[in-house]
Structure formats: structure tokens, C-alpha cells
Amino acid sequence: MSRLSPDNEELARTIIGRYPRSRSALIPLLHVAQEQEGWVSRDAMAHIAELLGITPAEVLGTCSFYGMFKLEPVGRYVVGVCTNISCLLLGGEELLEHCEARLGVKAGATTDDGMFTLEDVECIAACTDAPCLQVNYRYFLNITHDQVDALFDDLRAGRRTDEVPVHGTLTRVRQHVAPERWSGHGAEGLPLPPGQAR
């Protein structure tokens, strides 16, 4: 539970400066907060409200609308198992049950060691390769129970970090967009995502 760090506050001000109306910066700032702590805390929301001149209730309203903003701490790896129709027909539900058994938590919960948060998600638009899941929004398609076990073991052991960065939404944004095409992020002086060289 903390406010934005001084660095991030500065980043926030830079981002706010890019918009004609400061409140347009709300979602980018929520990303900054989530990157800082892995989730968006009350203090961070109150701080963002202050920076934007809106009320914390308005920040919470927006933040809670989007499932990808976490209002509680989550694990290092957020595992989303699709149980929508195509995946359901091809074993999505069994896949989720397997994950629950393997991680020892129900969907929606986080393992005691803080490594994994398991989620039951709607269609992630990879129906052609059902059943599928995502870890920190990286896709694992046509996945078998054995592959799931191996994936969890690897992540727990600190392997495959190049493939799956730690939780933090901005990380994903930065990983797939060449720095020169980032929407302002990564411009001079802005921090780079973990594991990224300029």
C-alpha cells in the first residue's frame, strides 16, 4: 500500500502533460501504479486522484471496471485459464481443475508462496488453439496437462523468464512494441521495463 514513488510521480506528471485534459491520463497512470506494486492500492488510487484533480471514487470506478487492473496483490505469475465455449468443448474446464489441483488454490486465489494467481477467464481469442491459457498475458496454446506441470515447475525454478516476464501490465506493452514506436514510454529518461535493453 503506497503512493507512487517519486520517480513514478515524475513519470506520471510527464504522462499527464501529454493530454489536453489531464483526466485522460487516468488509465496510463493506473498502469504505472500497477507496475510499481503489481497491483493498484488504495493509496495509489488516492495519489492518482490528487494528481489528476478528480476524486478517488472516480479512479476506483475506472480501475475496477478493468479486470487487468488488480485491486489486490497477485502472484508473480497470473495464470488465466480460458473456460469459454471453444476451450470448454476441448477440455478447458478440466485444464482449470488440473491447475487448481497442481497449484493447490481455487480460481481467483493466489498460492501461499505468492508465485501464482489462478484465474478463470473468458475467451482470449485463441479458440483455434483451444484449450489454452495465458501467464502474465503470454499465450500457451493447445496445452496439455503435462506441459502445464512443466511450465509451472520452470517458472517456480526461475526459468523461462525471457518468455514470461513477471507480472506487471506495462511490461507486456513494452515487450512487444519496438522502443521507437512506444507511445512515449521509453523516450529519453523514462525507465525501461525489466529485462529490456534500450
Binding site: 476524486t55 478517488p56 471514487a57 476506483l60 475496477s64 471496471f65 478493468y66
Partner: peptide, 17 residues
């Protein structure tokens, strides 16, 4: 604006911060 819609879909509620 001290009250707002919080959460989404079937879970939407009116509430304060």
C-alpha cells in the same frame, strides 16, 4: 463525484471510495 459505479457487469455497484 464521490460516488461512482464500481466493478463491472453483473457485479456493478454504486459505492464510494
Amino acid at each position: 463525484p464521490l460516488i461512482s459505479f464500481i466493478d463491472r457487469g453483473n457485479h456493478t455497484q454504486v459505492n464510494t471510495f
